[in-house]
Measured scan of single mutants.
Amino acid sequence: MTFKLIINGKTLKGETTTEAVDAATAEKVFKQYFNDNGIDGEWTYDDATKTFTITE
């Protein structure tokens, strides 16, 4: 399955996707992406659209 990440950061904005077997696996991938890029904020997940959103 394809999961999308929408980034609404102070310095970084955009979208990316990842292929994962489930939302929990995608969450781990995206959290690592947050850490690697110094993004910290509030994030949500919409199961209907398989979209994670992080807002700094």
Rank of each mutant, 00 (worst) to 15 (best):
A23D: 02
A23C: 11
T53W: 05
A23E: 05
Y45N: 00
T17C: 12
Y45C: 00
N8A: 07
I7S: 02
K28V: 08
D36S: 12
G41Q: 05
D22M: 02
V21Y: 09
G38W: 13
K28W: 09
I39T: 05
N35Q: 14
D47F: 06
D46C: 06
E42Q: 10
A24W: 06
L5D: 02
T18H: 05
F3M: 02
I6L: 05
A24Y: 09
F34M: 15
N37Q: 14
T53L: 05
A20T: 04
T11R: 08
K13G: 06
T11C: 15
F30M: 04
G41I: 11
D36A: 11
K28R: 12
T51Y: 02
N35M: 14
I6Y: 04
V21K: 12
K50P: 00
V21M: 11
K28H: 07
K4Q: 05
E19A: 07
T2M: 10
Q32L: 09
N35D: 14
T55K: 04
K50E: 01
A26L: 02
T18C: 15
D36K: 09
T18M: 12
K50A: 05
T49R: 05
V29H: 12
T18V: 14
T18I: 15
I54H: 05
K13T: 11
K50R: 13
T16N: 05
T25L: 04
T53Q: 04
K10N: 11
K31M: 11
I7V: 09
K13P: 06
A23V: 09
D36V: 10
T17K: 06
T25F: 07
K31D: 01
N35L: 15
F3W: 04
K4C: 09
K10T: 11
T55M: 06
E42W: 10
D36T: 09
I7P: 00
G38Y: 12
T49V: 04
K31F: 06
T49K: 05
T11V: 11
T25W: 06
T51Q: 02
E27F: 15
D47L: 04
K4D: 03
T25H: 14
K13A: 09
A48Q: 10
G14E: 10
T44L: 07
N35G: 12
E27H: 07
T11I: 11
E15V: 12
D46M: 03
G14C: 15
V21Q: 10
K50S: 04
G9Y: 13
A48H: 08
Q32E: 10
T18G: 03
T17E: 07
E27V: 04
I39P: 04
F30V: 03
A26H: 00
T17N: 04
T55D: 05
Q32N: 07
E19P: 03
K10E: 07
A48E: 11
K13D: 04
G38M: 11
N8D: 09
D47A: 12
D40H: 13
L5N: 01
T17Y: 14
I7D: 01
F3R: 02
D22A: 01
K13I: 11
I6P: 00
T44G: 05
G41R: 04
I54C: 06
T49D: 04
K28G: 06
K50W: 05
N8L: 14
F3Y: 12
W43S: 01
F3L: 01
G38K: 11
D46L: 02
A20M: 02
F30K: 00
T44V: 09
T25Q: 12
I7G: 01
G41K: 04
T51N: 01
T18K: 03
F3V: 04
I54F: 15
K28A: 12
T17Q: 09
E27K: 07
G38A: 11
T2L: 10
F30T: 00
Q32V: 07
A26D: 00
A23K: 13
Q32H: 06
I6H: 05
I6K: 06
T11N: 11
A24S: 08
V29R: 09
D47K: 05
T44Q: 08
Y33N: 03
K31W: 06
D40Y: 14
T17F: 14
E56V: 15
F52M: 01
A23L: 05
T17P: 01
T44D: 07
F34T: 15
Y45R: 00
I7T: 03
A48P: 05
E19N: 12
Y45I: 00
G38F: 14
Y33S: 04
F3I: 04
K10D: 07
D47E: 12
V29Q: 11
G41H: 09
D36N: 10
K4F: 13
Y45H: 00
T53C: 06
T18F: 14
F30S: 00
V29P: 00
K28S: 09
A20N: 02
T51G: 00
K4V: 13
D22I: 01
F52V: 01
Q32T: 09
Y33G: 03
K31Q: 07
T16E: 06
W43M: 13
L12N: 08
K28I: 10
E19M: 14
A24D: 07
E56C: 14
K4L: 08
N37A: 13
T17D: 04
K50N: 06
N35E: 14
N35P: 06
I54L: 12
K28N: 07
V29W: 14
M1N: 10
A20G: 03
Q32P: 01
T55L: 06
D47I: 06
F52C: 01
A26V: 02
T55A: 05
E42N: 08
D40K: 13
F30W: 03
T17G: 03
K31P: 00
K28Q: 11
Q32S: 12
K13N: 08
L12I: 12
K10I: 14
G14Y: 15
M1F: 14
Y33E: 04
E15S: 09
T18D: 01
T49C: 03
G14V: 14
D47G: 05
I6S: 03
T49H: 04
Y45W: 02
T44C: 09
V29E: 06
E42R: 07
A20H: 02
N37R: 14
V29Y: 14
D47H: 09
Y33C: 12
T51A: 03
